[in-house]
Design a protein around this nucleic acid. Sequence first.
DNA 1: TTAATTTCGGATATCTATTGACCGTTATTA
DNA 2: TAATAACGGTCAATAGATATCCGAAATTAA
Lengths: 178, 178
Amino acid sequence: MKMNEGIEWAIHCCSLLAHLPDKAALSVGALSEFFDIPQTYLAKNLQLLSRAKIVSSAKGPGGGYRLARNARNISLLDIVQAIDGRDPCFRCTEIRQRGPSALPPSRYRKPCGIARTMLKAEQAWRDELRKVSILEIKELGITETNPSQTRKAEEWLISVLRSPLSKGSSGTIYTLQK
Amino acid sequence: MKMNEGIEWAIHCCSLLAHLPDKAALSVGALSEFFDIPQTYLAKNLQLLSRAKIVSSAKGPGGGYRLARNARNISLLDIVQAIDGRDPCFRCTEIRQRGPSALPPSRYRKPCGIARTMLKAEQAWRDELRKVSILEIKELGITETNPSQTRKAEEWLISVLRSPLSKGSSGTIYTLQK
DNA sequence: TTAATTTCGGATATCTATTGACCGTTATTA
DNA sequence: TAATAACGGTCAATAGATATCCGAAATTAA
């Protein structure tokens, strides 16, 4: 059982987008360069975030992606479900309805106890993910990241956002830290 | 993200084995017939349970599988990990160490905050699974299963265990309910 | 209006993990 | 000795994850 790698990318991207000043956006190209990950596949995952209304997108020059709402209101569960869907990991195949001791399907009212137990465990997992917001992830990153990396990231971001075609960047001085 | 189907099979098998009287065993063939699942792949999964010391095996006529210890002391987590291994679903690929703002590897002491958060959620999932024993799963099955199915299953089991080659079955009358 | 940029959606290819079958070996029983 | 049954390895088929490409639509700037 292995989790979609796009989930890791999506969380990192959202955390980075949470650093941007209002109205500013980053293109797929910029994001894939910042994280050094495959551009086309990242594009697919960002589209999923867009459909889930976690990020909003703008086409054309200076366009790109930004968070669709406050980072405080985006949970890790939102992102995981946007990328991976809402199907549970455990899928009950109704084994109990097969084999020599099976009964007609109408006789099975309650869902299988094994399935209920497995799904309850997944619920505990989701509950944990729901508790954590992108804002917290962002702040965790700031406090734990080497200051020199923060500076490097800041400089890179500023250079990208100041490029001729990006909106909301004319002369804006800002810091990654707030 | 989809869970190994063998896990569902393994839990059902262990729950059934928990019904057997002492010393009795069921072969792969019997188990695959009871649940109507592919014999060869089930065999693979039972071997994994055997290596994990969740079931014990006996070769030769009358051999097969039985629980290696009391059903109370086998948790769903034991089974999940036996079949699926112990690797976490979420694998951190250290994205933060890539791209234009990366630093030399030695500068990253603590593990990535995103990874820690994701792994903590998985821990909550495992904690839930650890709480549930095969004994509870078995009892859940008994109380929730249609009495007529219980009877059918019982009859099937008795017929299999009374077959000439099975051990510990000579004249033993027992019930699935206890 | 035109050219450049950028997301969107579909189609498709590639890689990897899961699912499943097969076979020779070994241990056990009758 | 013959039959049973787990064991371990290899291999094939399928499904899922990863990745690329392309045409279309929208937006911006010149």
